[in-house]
């Protein structure tokens, strides 16, 4: 399905497990589309193309199985979808928005998605994220743009099809920082014996003698 010439940002990493406490994996090649427009112009076309409702408040997200829409700013949203679905959404949405001021950009290759599952994930993320992750404030259906360590991320909390108890957390990060974030999250999981990961960016900055 995925063109084998494509390499995901974390292709060199294997999923990590720390008992039932935390599992870390890459969900590669997800389709991601940035949309900028006035909400009044976007709501109906978005519904028509993706079947999703346009979230209009910070932290809100409409998370469907195949397609999710995240509020990022008062005139800015991200559509997260299946691999290879981004091009079609971009095209159809552009067509629907003709005549209105808008911008639609396919950024599927810009980002990758880290998934976190397990009973201690909120605690693990709280080591790196400053927003309130208590279930009262960050329930399933929440998505925000924030910092994780020193990387800017979108953090999404959604239903986990494999677990009724715990939600699934998705961390969307730009590809160049994906490995840094992977290693940082693994380090935050050390408490529950997540294996140590060394960042690939730790190359020497001088001539070998």
């Amino acid at each position: 399905m995925i063109d084998e010439r494509r390499v995901s940002p974390l292709a060199h990493r294997e999923p990590l497990h720390a008992g039932d406490f935390a599992h870390l994996a890459e969900d590669a090649f997800r389709g991601i589309v940035m949309v900028r427009a006035a909400p009044i112009h976007l709501a109906a076309p978005l519904q028509a193309v993706t079947g999703r409702t346009l979230p209009i408040r910070a932290g809100h997200a409409d998370l469907g199985r195949r397609c999710a829409v995240l509020w990022l700013g008062p005139d800015e949203w991200a559509i997260m979808t299946a691999p290879d679905a981004a091009a079609q959404i971009t095209q159809e949405l552009s067509a629907e928005l003709t005549g209105y001021h808008h911008q639609i950009v396919d950024v599927s290759d810009y980002n990758t998605v880290l998934t976190l599952r397990g009973s201690r994930v909120r605690e693990l993320l709280a080591k790196l994220i400053t927003i309130d992750l208590h279930p009262r404030h960050f329930a399933r259906g929440t998505g925000v743009s924030t910092l994780c360590g020193k990387a800017q991320v979108w953090l999404v909390c959604r239903e986990d099809e494999t677990s009724a108890r715990e939600p699934l957390f998705e961390v969307v990060v730009r590809r160049s920082m994906a490995d840094y974030l992977w290693c940082l999250i693994a380090d935050a999981g050390r408490e529950w014996a997540m294996p140590v990961q060394d960042p690939i960016g730790q190359v020497p900055l001088h001539m070998p003698v």
Partner: peptide, 11 residues
């Protein structure tokens, strides 16, 4: 933030 609510200064 008038749009996002209260966040830490680092953001």
């Amino acid at each position: 933030c008038p749009y996002c609510g209260e966040r830490d200064q680092i953001e």
